[in-house]
Structures are given as structure tokens and as C-alpha cells.
Design a protein around this nucleic acid. Structure first.
Length: 167
DNA sequence: TCAATGATTTTG
DNA sequence: AAAATCATTGAT
């Protein structure tokens, strides 16, 4: 067991996001441990990033993003899918990494469906939780980047930032 | 290509 | 208090 420690998460989201690729997301699902290699992520960077929920101000929903790196931010999109995010950076710096894909699962909504992640995971700590955490994994061969998906509403320069990272 | 679906946010 | 919004998915 080589769980990733807090210091990994308290860095800037643009450092953490690409580092997450190749790491193992581990969960206890139906009583047994399962792990998945993270293959696709997106960075959401604080109040100045208009694609980030926190840019609209601190609300009950975005509150978790202001916590110290290492906790989980889960929210419902379109009333249909749960999105799984990992909060990064220091206290009161609202940044998060959206996990968009695992090696065997494509699509952010399908991850949470498969792993049985729902709103009770919101605010849970990846450092101390017994049911979900990250471990060191394989180092990716090559990392690709692209603009983020589905954020046309955010406007420039945010729509063209290459803050989506994948293997 | 478009309907589904519900918490959050705005009063569109 | 009511209604629009919405970072996706899967079926048509």
C-alpha cells in the first residue's frame, strides 16, 4: 500500500492534474478493493477561471473546493450524472481536478456510475478515507493535452486553455 | 441529433 | 416561490 499523501494535493492544480495520470484510484466496492488507472483529467483553476464553479463566488455547493487539497468534490450535472473531482491547493484556494476518464471507463458520468460514487462522497478525504484513496501507479508513457470539454460558455481565454490532460 | 433529469442559482 | 440553467450520456 502506497497511498498518496497530502503534500501531493496541496500544489497548484496545473501541477497536480498531469501528475494524476497513471495513478491508481482505489475504492472499496461491494466489499472488495478495486483500482483503476486514471487516464484523463481536467484542471479547474480558481476564481479567475470562469469555467470553474468557484468563479461565481463561494456558495454552499462550491464550499468544498475551498478546502485544502486532498478532499473530493462531487456534484450532479444535468440532474443525471455525478462528477468526481479532486480538490487541490491550499486552504481557501478553490481549485479542483475533474476526473474524466479511467483506463477502462470513458466519460466522467460513467466513472461515478461504475464506482458507486454519489453525493455522500462529497467532502471525503482521499488521505484518510477507508473507502476511497489514491495510490502510486505507472508512470505514463506520454501525456497529451487539449482544450477542455463542454465549457464554451466560459469565454476566452479559458475555452482555449489546454488544461485537459490524457494518456 | 436530442430528450432526459434534478440540485443549484436566478428571477433569463 | 417558481423557473431557468447545465462542465453528459445513451437512445432515436
Amino acid at each position: 500500500m502506497n497511498r498518496i499523501y497530502e503534500s501531493f494535493y496541496t500544489r497548484d492544480v496545473l501541477e497536480v492534474a498531469p501528475d494524476l495520470l497513471g495513478k491508481k484510484l482505489c475504492v472499496y466496492s461491494v466489499g472488495k478493493k478495486e483500482s483503476f488507472i486514471i487516464s484523463e483529467v481536467e484542471a479547474y483553476r480558481g476564481v479567475e477561471d470562469s469555467a470553474c464553479h468557484a468563479s461565481k463566488g463561494r456558495t454552499p455547493r462550491t464550499e468544498v473546493m475551498y478546502k485544502k487539497g486532498g478532499v473530493i468534490y462531487v456534484y450532479l450535472i444535468y440532474g443525471v450524472h455525478w462528477m468526481f473531482n479532486i480538490v487541490t491547493a491550499e486552504l481557501d484556494v478553490p481549485q479542483a481536478v475533474l476526473i474524466r476518464g479511467l483506463r477502462s471507463i470513458n466519460g466522467p458520468g460513467r466513472i461515478t456510475n461504475k464506482l458507486n460514487i454519489e453525493k455522500s462522497f462529497n467532502g471525503e478525504s482521499l488521505i484518510s478515507s477507508q473507502r476511497i484513496w489514491l495510490e502510486d501507479g505507472e508512470k505514463p508513457d506520454e501525456i497529451f493535452t487539449s482544450p477542455r470539454i463542454g465549457i464554451d460558455y466560459a469565454g476566452e481565454p479559458w475555452t482555449s486553455k489546454a488544461w485537459r490532460y490524457f494518456i
